[in-house]
Design a protein around this nucleic acid. Structure first.
Length: 739
DNA sequence: AGCACGCCGACT
DNA sequence: GTCGGCGTGCTC
C-alpha cells in the first residue's frame, strides 16, 4: 500500500498542512508528486482538490481512519504540476516547509478571497425585511436580526467584512438564505494595473554591430541541444536591453512565452512604458506593491494565454505560462533576487531549475556579473557572451581615484576632495550635470580610523566589527567580542570612531560651496512619498537641476545624457560591511555609478574618493576591469572557502524569548556539531545575526561551509528531522539559508 | 470552507 | 427536560 501526503486546496490558514490518504491500487503507478487529485475531505466527505506533495510506503496516521483518494484530475493542469514540482525542489534546496514553498509558487490558493468578492443582498422588499427583522428580534435570533438590520442600512454587504465585523458565521446566514430572505452574490472584481493600451506602439530599434554579434552568438547557442544558459556580460551603456527585446520577439513569434525578471528598483515608469510600447497588450508588468489578488489576476491572464510576456521582480518567475520559452534575468547580480523569507530561494538558481524542467532557455545579463554566474561561465556551464562596446562606441568615462587620507593630511576635512570640487565647478560652468553618489551600504556601526583608514576587524573572520550600544565591538560571524578602542591600533591616532555622513549633510556642503547650483537630493527620505522617485528622476533628466545627490538608488540604469561627472564620496564604506560579499558589492556599485557618466554625446568623467585607494575593488572599478576584479575576488573566496568556491549553510533561529532562544540554539549547535564532526566540518557560531533583534524578536545564526553541497544538504536534512522530533523547538522559528 | 459538537438561554 | 441558536474546533 502507498500513502500520499496531500495539501487540500482550501484557502484557509487552518488547513495549511498535509493530510495523508491511501492510494487506490489502480492509481499506484500513475500517481506522482505534484499531481492534482480529488479527495473526500471533512465530515461531509465533500470532494475537493488536493496537491500531492509526497508519497511513502509507511503510514504516518491511523490507517483505520485514513480515507482513500478518489482520482487524478490532471488533464491540462500540467503547468500547475510543474510549478508544484518546482516547489518541491525549492523545499529540498532551501529547507523550507512544503506549504511555504507552495505558497510562494502558487498564489492560486488566495483566489477565493481575492478574485470573487462575495456580497450579501436582501431578497425581499424593505417593508418585509423590516417585519422579518422585528420577528427575529422578538424571537431568539439576534445574530440574524443584526444581519437583516445591517442590510436595511446598506443594501449590499461585503461577505468577509460582515463575518468579521459582527461575527456572522455560515450557520447564521444559511437559514436566511434558504428561506430566500437574503441572497449571496458573487461579483467579478476587475483590477487593472498600468493601462498599456494608451501607450503608442514603438518599433524595435535596429541592433548595432556588437549587439547583433551578441544576438548571433546566442542564436548559435540556442541551436545546441540542450542549449546552455547564456550570460551576457555587457559594459554599462552597451544596450543589453535591445538584445533582450530581439530575443523576446523571436521567442514569442515561435508561439512561446517569456518571463523577464528585473530588480524591483528598475521597475520604473520608464521601463514599463518601453515594454508596453514594444509589445503592447502582450505584456503584463508585476510589482511588489500589487496585492496578492492583483497578482493572481495577472497570473490568471498568463494561464489563459492572454499575455505572452511577464515582466516583474523575482516573484514573476512563477508565472504559470503553459509553454515557457525563455527566462531573462536582467542585472543578474542584484541582491533583490534572493528572497528574505522562507523559502529563501535565489531567483537565478530557481530560474535555472525551472528552465531545465520546462525546456526553456535562460539568459542572464549584467555589467558586473555575480561571482556565481561568472564562475559557471568560466567553467563552460554557461555560455559567455560579451558586449564590450558602449552604444555608438562612446568611450567609457575617465576615472580617477582620490586618496581621502591624503586630503586629511593636507588639511581638507570636507566631504569634497579638492579635485572633485574643481570638477563640479567646471561642469557648472559648461552647463553640464553631475551626480554625487554616497555609498551608504554597510555604513551602520563599523569603526574606522580617520587618519589611516584602518577598520577594526574580527581576528577570526576577516569581517568588520560592529559597534553595539553597550560600547562593545562584536563580530556577527563568530560572536567574537572586544571592548571599544580609544586610539587606532595601527597608527595610534585618536580620531577613530563610527563614520557619519548623510546625503543631507552633503547637500548642505554643496549649497555652501556652490550657492548658485540647483541641487536635487534623492534618498530614502525624499522618495518615501508615492511617485516622488519618478518626479526627481524626470526633473533631473529635464535638466531642471545641476547636481543630483543620492544613495545607491541613483546608480541603477538611468540614462541622463547631460551627466558628464560622477563623484563617488567615500566609495569604500560598503567595503566594511559585516559580509563576505562586501568587496563584490563595492565593485558593483562603483562600476554602475561610474557608468552613469558620459552616456550622451559628451565624454564623461568620474572621481572616486576612498580611504582604501589601493583596494582591488576600487582599483578595478576605476579601471572598469571586471576580469581583474573577478580574479582577485575569487582568489579570496577560494582562500576563505566562501561561496561560490564553497557552499554555505546557515541556520537562522529566532524567537521572542531570548533565554529560550539561547537554550534552543545551544542544543541545536551541539547536534549540528556532532553531525558535522563526522565530516570534519567546523561549525561557526552560534552568533547573533547581522541584525540581532528585529521587532523584539531575537535572532541567532549558525554557519557551515563546505565545498561539497551534498554533504551540507545531508546535514540540513538531518537537522530538519531533529527539529521536527523535538517539541522543544516548537516555540522557535527556524530557517535554513543555503548558498 | 463546511460540518459536528456542545454550551446556554428560553419555552413547553 | 428539550429545542434551537451560535461559537468552537477539526478535517487524513
Amino acid at each position: 500500500m502507498t500513502y500520499a501526503d496531500i495539501i487540500v486546496d482550501i484557502s484557509h490558514e487552518k488547513v495549511d498542512r498535509s493530510f495523508q490518504y491511501k492510494v487506490p491500487e489502480e492509481l499506484q503507478h500513475k500517481l506522482q508528486v505534484g499531481m492534482v487529485v480529488t479527495i473526500p475531505f471533512g465530515n461531509g466527505n465533500h470532494e475537493r482538490k488536493g496537491y500531492v506533495i509526497g508519497l511513502s510506503d509507511t503510514p504516518a496516521f491511523d490507517t483505520s481512519r485514513m480515507k482513500e483518494l478518489t482520482g487524478i484530475c490532471s488533464s491540462e493542469e500540467t503547468t500547475e504540476e510543474r510549478l508544484i514540482a518546482l516547489a518541491a525542489w525549492m523545499k529540498n534546496q532551501y529547507g523550507s516547509t512544503m506549504v511555504q514553498a507552495l505558497k510562494t509558487v502558487l498564489p492560486v490558493r488566495e483566489k477565493v478571497k481575492a478574485k470573487e468578492k462575495r456580497y450579501i443582498i436582501l431578497n425581499v422588499s424593505e417593508e418585509e425585511a423590516e417585519k422579518i427583522a422585528g420577528k427575529l428580534e422578538s424571537g431568539r435570533c439576534k445574530a440574524r436580526a443584526r444581519l437583516v438590520r445591517a442590510l436595511l442600512e446598506e443594501k449590499k454587504l461585503d461577505y468577509t467584512k460582515a463575518s468579521k465585523e459582527f461575527g456572522m458565521t455560515a450557520s447564521v446566514l444559511r437559514p436566511l438564505a434558504d428561506e430566500g430572505i437574503v441572497q449571496v452574490v458573487q461579483d467579478e472584481v476587475y483590477r487593472m494595473t498600468v493601462d498599456g493600451a494608451n501607450i503608442p506602439h514603438e518599433e524595435l530599434s535596429i541592433l548595432t554591430e556588437p549587439q547583433q554579434e551578441a544576438f548571433d552568438q546566442i542564436q548559435e547557442e540556442w541551436k545546441a541541444d540542450p542549449p546552455r544558459p547564456v550570460l551576457i556580460h555587457g559594459v554599462t551603456g552597451s544596450g543589453k536591453t535591445q538584445v533582450y527585446m530581439k530575443l523576446i520577439r523571436q521567442v514569442i513569434d515561435e508561439g512561446k512565452q517569456v518571463i523577464v525578471l528585473v530588480p524591483e528598483i528598475a521597475l520604473t515608469y520608464q521601463t514599463v512604458r518601453r515594454f508596453y510600447g514594444w509589445f503592447g497588450e502582450k505584456v503584463s508588468v508585476l510589482n511588489s506593491r500589487l496585492s496578492a489578488g492583483e497578482r493572481y489576476d495577472q497570473f490568471k491572464r498568463a494561464k489563459r494565454g492572454e499575455i505572452q510576456i511577464m515582466v516583474g521582480p523575482r516573484s514573476a518567475l512563477f508565472t504559470p505560462f503553459s509553454n515557457l520559452g525563455l527566462i531573462i534575468i536582467d542585472e543578474e547580480h542584484e541582491q533583490s533576487y534572493k528572497s528574505e523569507n522562507s523559502p529563501r530561494y535565489h531567483a537565478r538558481e530557481t530560474a535555472l531549475y525551472r528552465a531545465q524542467m520546462e525546456n526553456a532557455r535562460l539568459v542572464l545579463g549584467s555589467a558586473t556579473p555575480s561571482l556565481e554566474a561568472y564562475t559557471k561561465a568560466k567553467d563552460g556551464e554557461f555560455r559567455l557572451v560579451k558586449l564590450d562596446a558602449r552604444f555608438e562606441d562612446r568611450p567609457l568615462p575617465k576615472v580617477s581615484v582620490v586618496d581621502l587620507r591624503e586630503e586629511l593630511r593636507e588639511g581638507n576635512r570636507s566631504v569634497l576632495s579638492r579635485s572633485l570640487r574643481k570638477a563640479i565647478e567646471n561642469r557648472l560652468k559648461c552647463g553640464e550635470q553631475a551626480i554625487l553618489f554616497l555609498n551608504r551600504r554597510g555604513y551602520a556601526g563599523f569603526v574606522s580610523c580617520r587618519s589611516c583608514g584602518e577598520v577594526l576587524k574580527c581576528p577570526h573572520c576577516d569581517v568588520a566589527l560592529t559597534e553595539h550600544n553597550n560600547g562593545r565591538l562584536v563580530c556577527h560571524y563568530c560572536g567574537y567580542e572586544q571592548p571599544r578602542v580609544e586610539k587606532c591600533p595601527v597608527c595610534g591616532s585618536p580620531y577613530i570612531g563610527g563614520f557619519k555622513a548623510g546625503t543631507q549633510q552633503i547637500e548642505q556642503v554643496l549649497h555652501k560651496n556652490f550657492p548658485k547650483a540647483r541641487i536635487l537630493r534623492m534618498d530614502y527620505d525624499t522618495t518615501r512619498a508615492k511617485g516622488s522617485y519618478e518626479k526627481i528622476l524626470s526633473s533631473f533628466a529635464a535638466h531642471e537641476a545641476d547636481i543630483l545627490v543620492g544613495t545607491q538608488m541613483i546608480v541603477k540604469g538611468h540614462d541622463f545624457p547631460d551627466v558628464t561627472l560622477v563623484g563617488a564620496l567615500a566609495a569604500d564604506l560598503s567595503l566594511n560591511a559585516a559580509d563576505y560579499r562586501c568587496a563584490e558589492r563595492t565593485f558593483q556599485l562603483l562600476t554602475q555609478a561610474v557608468g552613469r557618466s558620459g552616456r550622451g554625446t559628451k565624454p564623461g568623467e568620474a572621481i572616486i574618493q576612498s580611504y582604501h585607494p589601493d583596494h582591488y575593488s576600487i582599483q578595478t572599478a576605476a579601471a572598469q576591469d571586471y576580469e581583474a576584479f573577478y580574479q582577485e575576488e575569487m582568489a579570496y573566496r577560494m582562500l576563505m572557502d566562501y561561496p561560490p568556491a564553497a557552499h554555505m549553510l546557515s541556520v537562522l533561529v529566532s524567537g521572542e524569548n531570548e533565554e529560550l532562544l539561547e537554550q534552543g540554539m545551544d542544543y541545536l549547535a551541539k547536534f549540528v556539531e556532532r553531525i558535522a564532526s563526522r565530516y570534519r566540518i567546523p561549525v561557526i557560531g552560534p552568533a547573533y545575526a547581522a541584525v540581532g533583534k528585529v521587532n523584539d524578536i531575537y535572532r541567532k545564526v549558525l554557519y557551515l561551509k563546505h565545498r561539497d553541497e551534498r554533504i551540507l544538504q545531508d546535514i540540513k536534512d538531518k537537522t530538519e528531522k531533529y527539529i521536527e522530533l523535538n517539541s522543544g523547538f516548537r516555540r522557535l522559528y527556524i530557517q535554513f539559508d543555503y548558498t
